[in-house]
């Protein structure tokens, strides 16, 4: 198998994928939020940061589709623009963790033996730590910033990806094309990244998509707890965190729409992951 046939296979896969209704719905939802993240500020009816105290906590109306929050800011505008932070931080964190996890998994699977043993134990140890707790520790120690959040998520998710990649590599390791490359005296880097990697891409892709869903959840959780993204960002997790106390007062619109946004984005991503996963099993 070489890279060209792999690429041809991908095109076929994509065609089959697009026939899956759940995959299409997932793509539409995610593309919608990506568009909001990119062009949101130009699309919204109000400045999402402008306060209007005398019109605070107004219920949804024609003027304010999703009502106004406790500072009189338009909730609709904030939900739309709020996609930006989470859709910057979570995907970058996921890409970082995928790169890191893939490199680790390739090394573990290809070399085996002591290297595999040692790295696997480290991976197990990291996996035993709950992501949010590690993130809280790191954010407290290093200070809160989007970069810290990305790095922390990348490090916490990399081991899971490494494990998946490792098992895939173990299966590939025995194939003749690897032995052939070794006989050609290709260097290890070439064998790992040019020969083996293209053949283990599908599981990596599925894993990365699933991780993206988790990353979104983690970012939302961190901003809910008050770490990571800072006010006055219209970030969804942050908005829920600062407004959930208002539900008791009947001001559900300050929270429900942000919650629905997070849910829809995660569902969308999981639908895409399901589609890709289903394809592998066909």
């Amino acid at each position: 198998m070489n890279t060209q046939t792999a690429a041809a296979g991908w095109r076929g896969d994509l065609r089959r994928l697009s026939r899956s209704a759940s995959f299409d719905i997932g793509v539409v939802i995610v593309l919608f939020w990506v568009a909001c993240a990119l062009f949101g500020p130009h699309l919204v009816p109000y400045d999402p940061f402008a306060d209007d105290l005398l019109n605070s906590l107004m219920p949804p109306s024609f003027a304010h589709w999703f009502g106004t929050d406790q500072l009189g800011r338009d909730v609709f505008s904030r939900v739309i623009v709020g996609a930006r932070d989470i859709l910057t931080v979570a995907p970058i964190a996921t890409v970082l963790s995928t790169i890191l996890g893939t490199a680790l998994g390739l090394t573990m699977g290809y070399f085996g033996g002591v290297i595999d043993e040692a790295l696997s134990r480290i991976v197990d140890a990291v996996l035993a730590l709950p992501t949010v707790i590690v993130a809280l520790l790191a954010l407290t120690a290093l200070g809160t910033s989007n970069i810290t959040v990305m790095v922390v998520i990348a490090f916490s998710f990399a081991p899971v990806i490494a494990r998946t990649v490792r098992s895939a590599v173990l299966a590939e390791r025995g194939f003749d094309y690897v032995a052939a490359a070794e006989l050609r005296r290709e260097n290890t880097f070439y064998i790992l990244f040019i020969e083996i990697l293209p053949n283990v891409l599908p599981p990596i892709l599925v894993e990365a998509t699933v991780r993206l869903g988790y990353a979104i959840f983690t970012v939302a959780t961190l901003s809910f707890i008050g770490f990571g993204i800072q006010p006055p960002s219209p970030d969804w997790g942050l908005s829920i965190s600062s407004n959930y106390g208002l539900i008791g007062g009947g001001f559900w619109w300050t929270v429900v729409f942000d919650g629905a946004a997070i849910a829809s984005l995660i569902i969308g991503i999981n639908l895409i992951a399901d589609g890709i996963e289903g394809l592998r099993h066909d």
Binding site: G245, L246, G248, G249
Partner: peptide, 9 residues
């Protein structure tokens, strides 16, 4: 109770 949470009451 903080005032914003008491609004409903």
């Amino acid at each position: 109770v903080p005032v914003l949470q008491a609004v409903g009451l």
